[in-house]
Amino acid sequence: MIQVQENDFDVDALYKGLLKSNKTGAVAMFVGLVRQFSDLSKEACSFELEHYPGMTERNLKKIVDEANDRWPLLDVCVVHRVGRLTIDDQIVFVGVSASHRAEAFQACDFIMDYLKSRAAFWKKETQGSKSQWVEANTKDEASLERWSKE
């Protein structure tokens, strides 16, 4: 399942959705939260996350398809929120079920690395009266290098 939505999500329900087979031996999950992005100010932070409908889902599907090609996965669930979010809001869920934990952990990590750099999302951070669009993070790009096929 790949879902892009404004509404919050229920982690327990998404987890249970990954338990479709008696071959499931492992489920690895990642839940990303909105954190305070500036240590310099006590002002509340928020951000708006925009996407290009259709293109974003296609990018996410390519990432999930690549994970399925690399590892023998039983199921994958990616839910990413868009719209206005504030500190402590859930923003992303990635869940992977597999017969073995190594595949589940690796695939979940792989999907998150690619999601951070290749999915079509744009973020505008707001702190007090200041807003700015966030540039791509070189650290996220560097994380992709470990997944390069040789």
Rank of each mutant, 00 (worst) to 15 (best):
L74D: 04
V79Y: 03
T126D: 09
Q90T: 14
K123R: 11
Q127I: 15
T126S: 13
F110P: 08
A119E: 00
S131N: 08
V76E: 02
A120W: 13
A120C: 10
I111W: 00
K124Y: 02
V94S: 01
H100Y: 05
V78E: 04
R84W: 04
V79C: 12
F121I: 07
A102D: 12
K124N: 03
I111A: 00
R81Y: 07
S97P: 14
H100D: 05
A102G: 11
A120H: 12
A98N: 04
S97T: 13
A119F: 02
D113W: 12
S117L: 14
F110M: 15
H100Q: 01
Q90A: 03
D75N: 07
E125A: 04
Y114F: 15
A120Y: 07
A98G: 08
R81H: 07
R84V: 12
Q106W: 11
R118S: 04
F110L: 14
M112F: 02
C108L: 04
V94L: 01
I91T: 15
I111Q: 01
D109G: 06
K124H: 04
D75I: 03
A102N: 11
R81D: 09
R84L: 12
S117I: 04
W122T: 11
H80F: 01
R84N: 10
F121C: 08
V94K: 02
I91V: 15
E103G: 08
K130Q: 15
S97Y: 11
A102L: 13
V96D: 05
C108V: 03
T126P: 04
Y114R: 01
F110G: 01
T126A: 10
L85C: 12
D113M: 02
V78S: 01
F121P: 00
I111D: 00
S131A: 14
T86E: 14
W122A: 05
F93N: 01
V96C: 06
Y114L: 09
Q127K: 08
Q127D: 05
L85D: 03
H100A: 12
H80P: 02
L85A: 11
S117F: 10
A102M: 13
E125V: 05
S129K: 05
V96E: 02
T86D: 10
V76D: 02
G128C: 06
G128H: 09
T126V: 14
S97I: 13
R84T: 12
T126L: 08
F105T: 06
A107T: 07
C108Y: 04
V78A: 00
D113P: 07
R84Y: 05
R118Y: 01
A104D: 13
I111S: 01
D88R: 14
F121S: 00
D113Y: 13
R101D: 06
F105K: 03
G83M: 11
R84P: 01
R84S: 04
R101G: 13
D89R: 01
T126M: 06
I111K: 02
W122S: 07
A107C: 12
V79I: 14
Q90D: 01
C77A: 15
E125N: 10
C77I: 11
